[in-house]
Structures are given as structure tokens and as C-alpha cells.
Amino acid sequence: MNDYTEAEVQRALAEDLGIAEQGISVVRAGAGLVLCGEVESPHRRDEIVRLVHERFPGIEITADIGVTRAAAPTEAEELA
């Protein structure tokens, strides 16, 4: 990993058509990278981790990526 790795990972996540995620933060932590954000399915989270391992072998990856909840709202906002 070097000073440009964060940028390369961030661009790979956006530009790889199997991923196309712009909402994932890539933060350097010690010798590894922490990936943070939310995606729409567990499959997409797994694909992100797989792609980063594949393209950037040897870098320790911590994925703190959630799947956005899609339940009906419990209340409305009143805009009187």
C-alpha cells in the first residue's frame, strides 16, 4: 500500500461496472484499509470486499459496510 492506494480503491469501486458504488469511504488505518458506507444488498457488500482483495492483494481490509434498511416509515413529517 502506498499514498495513492486509497484513491485507487475509491476509483475502482466507482468505475468497476460490477460495483458502481460512489458512497463507500476508503480510510487508511495502520497497514490496512477500512471501507465504510451502506449498500443495497449483502451481495454488493461481498462483491466490494472480493474486488478489493483481488485488485489489491496483501492489503488488510476491514469492511464496515451496512445494508440500508428498506422498511416502511413509522411516521410522516408535517410541513405546515
Binding site: 434498511r69 416502511a72 416509515p73 410522516a76
Partner: peptide, 20 residues
């Protein structure tokens, strides 16, 4: 009034705004 309704922001299927 401006509302950002990006799904990861609202964290629900949709938001509802009641306008008089």
C-alpha cells in the same frame, strides 16, 4: 424547505411529507 431523500440518508423505503 429542502429534503435530502437519498436512501442511505433516510434509512427507510421512503419518507413522507405532509403539506397543508
Amino acid at each position: 424547505r429542502v429534503r435530502n431523500v437519498a436512501h442511505p440518508v433516510i434509512k427507510q423505503a421512503y419518507s413522507v411529507f405532509n403539506l397543508a
